[in-house]
Design a protein around this nucleic acid. Structure first.
Lengths: 198, 198
DNA sequence: AGTTGACAACTTGAGAGAGTATTGTCAATT
DNA sequence: AATTGACAATACTCTCTCAAGTTGTCAACT
């Protein structure tokens, strides 16, 4: 393995992202990725098992980053001292980022979406579950602090976290552009948290 | 054409629904539908052009019925004099009915879902749009009557109707059973309308 | 060490053909 | 008039083949 391997891996992943989003997963060959990276196809195999692993790594990286962002927003570490509703809004938008970057932008969005479920369904699911878990924790804390009233709404923290997650997922459908999705999420979160006020 | 043709058509559609939900669209033959109906395959062609038309008719029927139910609930004609939130809840559940009956129940749910988009994407879309339009009207009226406060939430009636529709659509995902979806919808609507209170 | 060209193995997609299943249409039947 | 059995046409499902493209792996090179 070359040194420093991580930088090289990064540049390969970034090249792969460009090509995947341009041609989709199937229609992108290792040759394409190599060319975009500026190395020979053979050397890609020094850094990754195969094309599927590149895709999984890329997906994992995007999910990791967006999940980390989302959790940072949720826990309130981000600058500004925002209220809960704004933090959830920011977290949801952060979580949508990979989707909006890769899937919604590309002409091959639906193919990439399918492959993503096939090759990294586990990653996607794990990321969702982790997000819901974090959101559950945050909602519980907020309920204890009297910021929101879950009992009044007849909901538990996990159920509420699930509602927010699934509801937001629905907002991706039939969106003409990225701005529309973001606008929807903002409206959704605003109303939803107004409804949870203690 | 036989007489009364509508009863016969009904019985064929009902037989088709059984078979489609049992075997999916592709794996159901006209022979299967004929057998289930209790007539010869040939006579099916007296009532329907072909299998696709049976599917479209069935889909149209289910959508029509559920949309009519939903609109009845929304406009408040249904018995009980429910408040807006409960009416929307009932309307959303009514609208989910075809999905829950046919798609979620059947082992071939995803195949049926795909075929449905292919063969009657127009019907599905039209039904959604009609529902959103009716919901928009109802929300506007409620806003005018002071029942809900859209301006306070920074939303228009159409945008709010869209949020409700898309949010509810998201709640169908990854549901272990029908009761779960219904429970989610109830929680969602309750919180959402609490957030819209004037 | 890291990189690469070149090679063999493998996958893919198109095309052809044969056999089966399904369709759509009648003339004949009730 | 409604229904049906039976027929021809069509569509589907395998299977095989072939060519082209793609992959994964070296030994050789820098």
């Amino acid at each position: 393995m070359p040194n420093p391997p991580d930088l090289k891996r990064e540049s390969i992943l970034s090249a792969a992202q460009v090509q995947f989003s341009r041609y989709g997963f199937r229609r992108t060959s290792m040759e394409d990725i190599a060319k975009e990276t500026g190395v020979s196809r053979a050397s890609l195999y020094s850094y990754f098992e195969n094309k599927e692993e590149i895709f999984r790594c890329l997906s994992a990286k995007l999910h990791e980053r967006s999940l980390a962002d989302a959790e940072r927003y949720l826990s309130g570490d981000a600058p500004g001292g925002l209220d809960l509703s704004s933090r959830v809004e920011a977290a949801l938008l952060a979580r949508l980022a990979p989707f909006l970057e890769v899937v919604a932008q590309s002409a091959h969005g639906s193919e990439i979406y399918d492959e993503s479920n096939r090759l990294c369904g586990d990653l996607v699911l794990a990321s969702s579950e982790r997000f819901i878990a974090t959101l559950t924790t945050v909602l519980s804390a907020a309920a204890r602090a009297g910021e929101i009233d879950l009992k009044g709404a007849g909901l538990t923290a996990p159920a509420t976290a699930e509602l927010i997650h699934l509801g937001a997922a629905g907002l991706k459908q039939r969106a003409p552009d990225v701005a529309t999705v973001e606008k929807r999420v903002r409206g959704f979160v605003r109303v939803f948290f107004a409804g949870l006020e203690g």
